[in-house]
Design a protein around this nucleic acid. Structure first.
Lengths: 212, 212
DNA sequence: GCACGTTTCATACTATCGTATTACATGGGT
DNA sequence: ACCCATGTAATACGATAGTATGAAACGTGC
């Protein structure tokens, strides 16, 4: 249509579905909405991606795998550079948070919707997603948990895990509601300044996870 | 059936629907599931509660209105007691958080599901709910925002609002995932100790919203 | 004990869902 | 020029969704 370059059907479906899933959830989105938004025939999604669940899982995986790989790679590099001493807290948080905020900032490629969808998929438990999500996050949570733990070794495990849960919750909520942050604050907070939001989140997380 | 006392049909539908909406979301729940779980005829829900949207809204309102009324009442009392000086931060947070955690703790009356559902309904935006939720939260957010603000008057509004957003996000996430906290932490964090969870949340929120 | 307002029931109706099927277009390789 | 693989299109199909309907059951006045 008006597009300068016609993307592959397959890709157009992924982009359209991503936005709709992010906005309306899995059950709230129909394949007809998706194919209509992608300007594609209804049968295309089944032909290219199998059934609806496969499509959803493919969308999440496509975004999440590179992010978690990058996290693990950057953590390994940071630990190597630290030569045995703990990696600074703000560096750890930055490594965890940055890929998601940057994804959100990439509006042209649907990053806003992707980030929202990731936040959503982690909160609302879809039965067919749990095993994938568990497998996907187990390594990253385990390795970062250890690294973070070194900054509060005296803290009882229970307290540490609660704090971690609060930080994760704040992060997911930020991702899920960033797009209406401007409206919710009567224009005071911008919703398109990924760098400012990230900086504030890191500051927040460091304060929460810091020792005392 | 096995129940010691047979509740009204109307009430049974509300309880069953609450649990299912909390678990599977609005679109993921069918009226047939609800009536089956409530041991009630399919037509009962339409007869007593109108359509599906009305049922959902009624469930949320029934839980949320008393909570927000109690919050405003307790805030007014605390401000009266403080005689012009700022109400302590931990008191403010406690007033906001306590009703939700106590709701969660009231497992016998479906409080667990209700708390989860409230958390969920605030994150996933259902079109027919937005105006109700906005009206419901406007007063409480405005009044508590002012009260909290007195503890960090020098902080730029933007920073303050971001911190508030993080705290709210942590709270909603805690409500939405408390029920699987034990599993997520390999048994380290209990999911049935409302008091301990609340204490940790208050500590967390005070630290985040405190001045520096 | 019977009439009447209220609630419960079985079931019908229409729309729309995910998925399947079948025919049609297209465009390189020989 | 023809073929065949690959993608696209129109449309059918069974299941199930929310909602509507009308009859049966119930209970409480007189």
């Amino acid at each position: 249509m008006g597009d300068t370059k016609l993307k592959e059907t397959l890709e157009r479906v992924l982009i359209a579905a991503e936005a709709l899933f992010a906005e309306n959830g899995y059950d709230g989105t129909t394949l007809r909405q998706i194919t209509q938004r992608a300007n594609v025939n209804l049968a295309a999604v089944n032909y290219h991606h199998g059934d609806k669940e496969s499509l959803y899982l493919e969308i999440i995986r496509r975004r999440l795998q590179p992010i978690n790989e990058s996290r693990l790679k950057n953590l390994a590099a940071a630990e190597l550079g630290a030569e045995g001493s703990p990696v600074p807290l703000d560096v750890l948080v930055e490594i965890m948070a940055r890929p998601l905020f940057e994804l959100y900032a990439d509006a042209d490629h649907g990053g806003r919707h992707a980030a929202r969808l990731i936040g959503r998929s982690l909160v609302e438990p879809l039965p067919f997603m749990t095993k994938f999500l568990a497998a996907e996050f187990q390594p990253v949570m385990s390795r970062f948990g250890q690294a973070l733990r070194r900054h509060a070794p005296a803290l009882p495990p229970e307290d540490f895990l609660w704090r971690l849960s609060f930080v994760v919750g704040a992060m997911l909520h930020a991702l899920a509601t960033l797009h209406r942050m401007k409206d919710l604050t009567r224009g005071i907070c911008r919703d398109n300044d990924q760098v400012a939001a990230r900086a504030r989140f890191v500051q927040f997380a460091v304060r929460v996870l810091g020792t005392p």
